[in-house]
Design a protein around this nucleic acid. Structure first.
Lengths: 135, 135
DNA sequence: ATAACATCCGTACCATGGTACGGAGTCAAG
DNA sequence: CTTGACTCCGTACCATGGTACGGATGTTAT
């Protein structure tokens, strides 16, 4: 069973150590028991595969546009029986995502107009503002 | 010739007055000469169609993922002869946009898997983390 | 000409998502 | 058994893109 330290976890998740710690503070990742440690103090926390999966999930959920607070809810839901709530959150996000994708596609079209207009050999200023006007 | 105050400009651009003022501070919008005003002080600034177009451009450029600093550069470029620079910026952003659109599409697929898995009638927890795992 | 409302501007504050610092403790190698 | 790298934790700081406050001044309707 592969166990690692916070640095290993961060590496596996493609983030920095400080970011892992930040997620812990925000309640997205747990803080395992410290191992070793003399008496009351010290010791190092060890992380396993579950933590890595969890961290990776956080990153991909972020790309889906969930905020860290929403991701915290999703993570709580993952273990709960509330399938309905999970379903609602997913569908809401799909709608938002579709809107965002449409928006970006429109922006892409504008940029293509811009690049075309400013790629030609003719002289003079490039009408940047105008290129966005037919949105 | 339709002239308006900052509140009208903000309304036309779909933003708040404070946001307009923020863009002015950031150098994205100008501050026209104050009209009226007794002696050295006071007077109200008036805005025209150009300002409205400029403000709308800022908003749509933001949806294309440009930062306010980049938008400031675009606005400066709009009047300049540097067609090449404009072209480069546009093409760079198209590449970034394509990547972002692909990312969002992948996230959408994950969410659809999630909604499917959690929409079924069966009981138990909904595997939210797992639904994102085949990315 | 006065009340009611807008503008102007500086400054402060906010949310989000981190990133950095520094002192104390821990651990493995030589 | 010391040196060097890493961990832990609290706290501070950062960038981005705003939002709010408040006093002085300007404008407009009655």
């Amino acid at each position: 069973m592969k166990e690692t330290t916070i640095a290993g976890l961060a590496r596996e998740g493609g983030v920095g150590v400080e970011t892992v710690r930040y997620y812990q503070r925000r309640g997205l990742l747990g803080t395992p028991q410290r191992t070793g440690g003399v008496g009351l103090a010290g010791g190092i926390r060890r992380y396993g595969e579950d933590d890595i999966r969890r961290l990776r999930f956080i990153r991909t959920a972020q790309t889906a546009g969930f905020t860290l607070d929403e991701i915290r809810e999703l993570l709580a839901l993952d273990a709960s029986e509330d399938r309905h709530r999970a379903n609602v959150l997913a569908r809401e996000r799909i709608v938002a995502l579709d809107a965002k994708i449409a928006e970006l596609s429109a922006a892409r079209a504008s940029l293509l107009r811009l690049a075309d207009a400013c790629g030609s050999t003719s002289k003079g200023p490039c009408p940047i503002i105008a290129a966005f006007e037919q949105e």
